[in-house]
Computed example of a mutant assay.
Amino acid sequence: MNRTSQAGRDTASSSGARPTPPDDRYRRGTRRTGAEPLTASWEPAGRRHRKRRRGLKGLIANYGWRIYALPVLLVLTALVVLDTAAPTRLGSAGEESAAQTAASTAAGPPVASETPPPKVDLVNIPTAVLPDGPKFSEQGTGTWQVVPGTTPQVGQGKVYKYAIAVEDGVEAADYGGDRDAFARTIDGILADTRSWIGTGEVAMQRVDGTTPVDFTVSLTTTSTTHSLCGFQIQYETSCWHPPTERVVINTARWVRGAKAFSNDLSTYRAYAINHEVGHALKNNHEGCQENGQPAPVMMQQTFGVANDYVAQLNEVDSSNRGIVPADGKTCTPNAFPVAPK
C-alpha cells in the first residue's frame, strides 16, 4: 500500500492539483519535494549556447594554438623515422663517405691529431746513442737454444746454411713472446730478393741445428754481446763473431733500433741482419759513397750515415780506423744490399 505524508495529502486535496510526474522532478524551476535526492543540472543556468563554427576558422576558434603545432609535429615525426631507417653509407674499404667526412670536419677541429716523428738530423746529433724505448735483457748465460724449424733453399749460387738461436736469459718480451715468429722474421729478411740472395751469387737455407751451419743468427743479451764483440766504441751494437760463427744480434738494438732509422724498427732490424750476415759472407765495412743516396748496407748505420761522424767514432777502434773517410758525405738509411728492380 502506498503511503503519503499528511502534508502531501492536505496539499493535494486543497489545491486539487495532480502530483508532479516523477519524470519532471529534475527539470529546472520545478520544486523539489523532501523525498527527492539532490541533483545538479547538466546545463548551468545563464550559459548561452554558442553555435559551433565549421571549416578552418572553426578549427582555429575551437583548438587555438594547437592547430598550428600539429603540422610541425607531423614533419618532425617523419624526419625522425627517416633518419632511423636510413642505413649508414660507407665508402670503399669501410671508410666514411666524402659527405660524412666533410660534415665531421665542419663540426670543429679534431679532438686528437697525429704526431709524426721529427726528421732526424743525421749530421749534427749523436746518432749512435741508443734510442729511448722499452726495457731489454742485459744479462744472459752465454748459452743459446736453437729454434726448431727449417726452410727450403732460396736463391741461386753457393748455399749458406744457417740456424736461429736465442740466448738463455733473454726475456720473451724481447722477441715478442713467440720464438717461432721471431725465426720467421729472420727467414723473411734473408729470403727477400733485395737481400743477399738477390745478387744471384748465394742461396740461403735454414736448418734445424743438427746439420752443420755456416752461421747462426743469435739473439744475444748486451753483456754477452760486449764480451763477444768488444766495447771499444761505447755504444750498443751487434757483430759477426768468426770464432763461433755467430751473427750476434744485440737485444738492445733489436728492441729499440737506431736513431738514424727514426722509429722504423722493422727496417732497422732488416738492416742489422743483412749487415752482420754480410760479414759472414766476407764483406767489410764501407762508408757513404754518394751524398744523399742510400747508404751501403755494409756501412755502420747503427752509429749513423754521416761519414764524418762514423769516422770520428772509429778512431777509438783500431779494427775500423780509417775505413770510413771523413769527407762530409751523408747518405740515407738503407736496409738491403740489392736495390729493388
Rank of each mutant, 00 (worst) to 15 (best):
P152I: 05
V80T: 07
V81R: 02
R89G: 04
A99Q: 13
P126K: 07
T141H: 01
P126A: 09
Q153P: 01
V120N: 02
S137T: 10
A103W: 12
A93Q: 15
T88P: 07
A93K: 13
L90D: 14
V75Q: 07
T84E: 02
A112W: 11
P118I: 05
A86Y: 10
A112N: 05
W144K: 04
V111G: 06
A93F: 09
A86Q: 04
D132Y: 00
P118N: 07
T150F: 06
P116L: 06
Q153E: 15
L122E: 04
A112S: 09
G140F: 00
V129A: 08
V129P: 03
G91E: 09
T150E: 13
K119P: 15
T141P: 11
P152V: 06
A128M: 05
P109Y: 04
D83V: 11
A98I: 12
T101R: 15
T115K: 08
Q156S: 13
T143N: 14
T127H: 04
P71Q: 01
E96Y: 08
A128W: 07
P131E: 00
Q156M: 06
A99V: 13
P134E: 15
Q156F: 04
A85I: 04
P117T: 09
A93T: 11
Q100E: 14
T151P: 02
L90H: 15
G94I: 10
E138Y: 00
T101E: 13
L74R: 02
P117E: 11
A102D: 15
P118L: 05
D83H: 05
T150Y: 08
P110D: 11
L130M: 04
V81S: 05
G155A: 03
E96M: 13
G108F: 06
P87N: 04
I125T: 14
G142A: 09
L79D: 11
G157K: 09
G91M: 10
L79G: 09
G133K: 13
G157D: 04
P126F: 02
A128Y: 08
P117F: 12
F136Q: 03
L122R: 04
A102K: 09
L90M: 15
Q139P: 00
L130T: 06
Q145R: 05
G149I: 01
D83S: 13
R89W: 02
L130V: 07
P71E: 08
P131H: 01
